[in-house]
Amino acid sequence: MLAAVDWHILWQRIFHPDHVFVLALWRTIYISVSAQVLGVVLGLIAALARMSRIAPLRWLSGLYVLIFRGTPVIVQIFFVYFGANLLFGFTLIPNSVNFGLFTMDGAAFAGIVALGINEGAYMREIIRAGIDAVDKGQMEAARSLGMTYRKAMRRIVLPQATRFIVPPLGNEFNNMMKTSSLVFFIGVTELFGDAEIRYSTTFKPVEYFLAVAFWYLVLTSVWSVIQAQIERKLAVSERGDELSFRERVFQAWAPVAAWGRGAR
C-alpha cells in the first residue's frame, strides 16, 4: 500500500514548496487572521449590545447569534459572495477590492467577510463570558471613582476580561485556520484549494493532501506557541509575578523532578 505513495512529491511539497504554494499558504494566513480580527470586533460589539439597556440592541444581538451560529458557514460564504447578486441583482463584492495600499481578490474578501461574521457570533458568547467572569466589584469601584460605564468597561473590565477570553479565542483561531479552507468553494486558491487543484491534475490525492495536512499542522502548532506566550504575558501582569523563563521551566519540571527523586 505505502509503496503507492510517491514520497518524492510529499518531500517536495514539504521541503521545497514552490511560489504558487507559498502564495496559497499566505492566503490561508491572511484570510484567517483578517476573519478572526473581524470576528473579535463584531463579537465585542454584539457582546456589548447583548448587555445594553436598550432592548432592540439586545434583540439584534440575539438574532445575529441565532442566524450565524445556526446555519452552516459554507452557506453563509455562498450568500455573501453570490447572494446579493442573485437576490437583488447588484454586485456586493466586486472582482477585486481596492484598499489603497493593496488590492484584494473579491472572492477572498467575501470569504473574510463571511468567516468574520460567522466567527463574531461565536466570539460574542466568549467575550460575554469573559466580561461576566470579572468580579462585579471592579465595575463598582471604577464607577464609584467617577468613571462612566464606557470608560470603566474600556479601562478596567475589558483588560481583565482578556485573560478569560484569550484561551477560548486561541481555540477559535485554530479552528478558523482550518475552516478558512471552505473559501476554496468560491474560488480562492488557498492551502486546501492548491492541493485540490494539483491533485486533480496529477491524480495523486494522498501525496497532496498529506502535504497540506502537514502545513495546516505547522500553522496550528506555531499558533499554539504564540498563544501560550500571550497567556503567559497576561498571567504575569495579572498576578504581578516577574518570573524569568528559566524559573518557569524549572517550576514546570519541579513535580517531575520530585517524582523522579521519590522513585529512587
Binding site: 466589584g137 471592579q138 463598582e140 471613582l145
Partner: peptide
C-alpha cells in the same frame, strides 16, 4: 443621565469591604 451621575460620584469616595483594587 449617566455622565452627570459619574460627575457626582467623583466627589464621593468609597472604600469597599473586598478592596476591589484593579488587579491589572
Amino acid at each position: 443621565t449617566e455622565p452627570s451621575i459619574a460627575r457626582q460620584r467623583a466627589e464621593i469616595g468609597m472604600v469597599f469591604q473586598r478592596f476591589n483594587l484593579f488587579p491589572h
